[in-house]
Amino acid sequence: MHPDHAALQAALARRIAALAPVAGHLREAVVHPTVAPHEWSGSAARAYRELEGELRGRLRHAADAAEGALHEGRLALARLELLAQQQAAGVLHG
């Protein structure tokens, strides 16, 4: 196996480990959004609800991106692992 690939695999694994709980937090915030009580009304409440809507949108994008990154990262790890196995097999047979 290429030594840089081993370093890359380790780096990817660290990132996946760090990102997995974050993705969980983000998805939870999307599924259970913070919503201001209905009793609050008026111009300040309207402005706040706009911000709240922006936050929900941002959280959704972040959750999607985090889950996408996890998916890509795991794919990359699997691909690198396969390469490593192929390289090892080539050495043995070659």
């Binding site: 990817l12 941002r58 985090a66 990154a69 990359a76």
Partner: peptide, 30 residues
């Protein structure tokens, strides 16, 4: 250096990690 000569899927993953970090920071800011 780490990404030189690696499969495209690894480079995509690295890019996606950067995007996820940026969007998480953005969500924290919001």
């Amino acid at each position: 250096g780490l990404l030189a000569g690696v499969p495209a899927v690894a480079r995509d993953a690295a890019h996606q990690f950067g995007v996820a970090l940026a969007l998480t920071r953005g969500a924290a800011h919001d």
